[in-house]
Design a protein around this nucleic acid. Structure first.
Lengths: 112, 112
DNA sequence: TGAAACGCTATGGAAAGTATAGCATATGGT
DNA sequence: ACCATATGCTATACTTTCCATAGCGTTTCA
């Protein structure tokens, strides 16, 4: 039962399936960005590796997210486990700047 | 009951509250990025405006997301409704490149 | 050939999201 | 003043998702 939001079909935020909204629907699920981020940073990893790096993710959710990310072709399986695809890496790279913005956000919140 | 993930506290993906994971925890909730994106694009907007633009969001969830985004200081209230803050806009701008990547992703998916 | 590691799946309960109705207040026109 | 409409939500009942935890079947390797 792997249902993923597809551009061109109704998704959250867009009945017509605007690509950005389909993507938000996909990666805006609990843990989805965290998994993509972690997998991009550590490279090919086994299920257990990922589970450890994500610290508190449950195997059920990790498995679910991996299925979705594979169905959306952001992640695929290789001999040594899971790996981000080319397009998955592009999305990760788009997310990278959020890292430093998040730090500024954190500083701003703590300054009060 | 507005609970938001705060950097420095345990969040999904990081027991120590890494800023990026706190941010993912916050904006990786259903509709959160869609609301931030929409609000950034249309400028200050009323609750009903936002509801219309988001097409299928329920008022309960919109209200909940707005509370969270306000608590996290990505959004605030002004005379004419809701508006993104400076740091909220920075995060939105970090998300903008995802728009074109999403289109490439969509094309790739439809090419098979 | 047994022990450990691996990749999940099962389960039951808690939390989150959804659709829809509707309320209280503000606003506008007659 | 009166009524209609718009606004910003809240309430309710229901469905879906998430979560923690246990554990199963398979592979690896000493």
């Amino acid at each position: 039962m792997v249902r993923i939001p597809k551009p061109g079909q109704p998704v959250r935020g867009s009945r017509s399936g605007a690509p950005i909204m389909a993507l938000f629907d996909l990666i805006g699920r609990r843990w989805a960005m965290g998994v993509l981020w972690t997998l991009s940073e550590i490279g090919p990893a086994t299920f257990r590796d990922l589970q450890d790096k994500c610290e508190t993710i449950s195997p059920a959710v990790l498995n679910q997210r991996l299925k979705e990310l594979q169905a959306a072709q952001l992640v695929h399986k290789v001999a040594s486990g899971y790996e981000v695809t080319a397009i998955g890496r592009e999305i990760y790279q788009d997310l990278v700047p959020l890292g430093s913005t998040a730090k500024r956000w954190a500083r701003q919140l703590s300054d009060q």
